[in-house]
Amino acid sequence: MKTLQIKPFTNFNFKTMKTMTTMKTMKNISFYALLAIAMLGCSDDDAAPLPINDEELITTVILTLTPESGDQVVLTTVDLDGDGPDEPVTTVVGSFSENTQYQGAVRFLNETETPAEEITDEVVEEADEHQVFYTISEGLNIQTTYEDQDSQGNPLGVQITLSTGLASEGSLTVTLRHEPVKPNDGLDSAGGETDIATSFDVSIQ
C-alpha cells in the first residue's frame, strides 16, 4: 500500500522519504535503548550486606608459665583489629626466677567473637599441620622443650617446659606456623605460613 502511495513521487522524493522514516526509526530505537538502559539501572536497592568477621582471625595469644612453686608469668598479646592499623598490645605479667622450671601452655583466641573462640583446639586437632616455635634472643638464659607431639611424633609446642638460668634480659618470641615442613631444625628451615609472630620483652631476676 505504501509503495502505491509513494508511486507518484519522483525517485528523489522516494529516497528522502525513506531516509526520513529511517531517521525516525533510528530515533525510536535510540529512545527505546535509552529507556531500556534506564530501566536496567533502576533495579531496587538491595538490602545492606551483612558484616563478615574474619573466621580465622587470631586476636589473642596467652602464654602462661607456671613454676612448681612461686609466681606465674603470663605473656599476652592482643590485636583486635587483625591487619588493621592498631598495633598489637603486649603485656608481660610477672618475671622469671633464676634456675627455675616452668610448665608452659599457650592459648590462641579469637576475641572478636562472643564468647571468644578457642583456636587452640583447632591447632591441637590439626597438630600435623601446625607447630609453635619459641625463639629466645641471645643473652637471655632460657631454654624451651616441647612437651607435646603430633600423630607423627613431631613436636607441636602448645605445651612446653621452660627452664631459666642466671639473671638476664631479652626477648621471647612465639611463632605459630601453619603447614610447616615437619620435622625441621627450627624456624629458619620450617617454611609454611606465619599465623602468629609476637615478641615479649622478659627478664630473669
Binding site: 535503548a33 538502559i37 534506564a38 539501572g41 533495579s43 550486606p49 563478615i52 574474619d54 573466621e55 580465622e56
Partner: peptide
C-alpha cells in the same frame, strides 16, 4: 553510538573472610 550498562558486584559473606 550510545552505550549504557549496569553492573553489580556481590561478595559472598559465606567466605568468612572480610570482603
Amino acid at each position: 553510538g550510545i552505550i549504557g550498562s549496569h553492573q553489580t558486584n556481590f561478595a559472598n559473606p559465606e567466605t568468612g573472610v572480610r570482603r
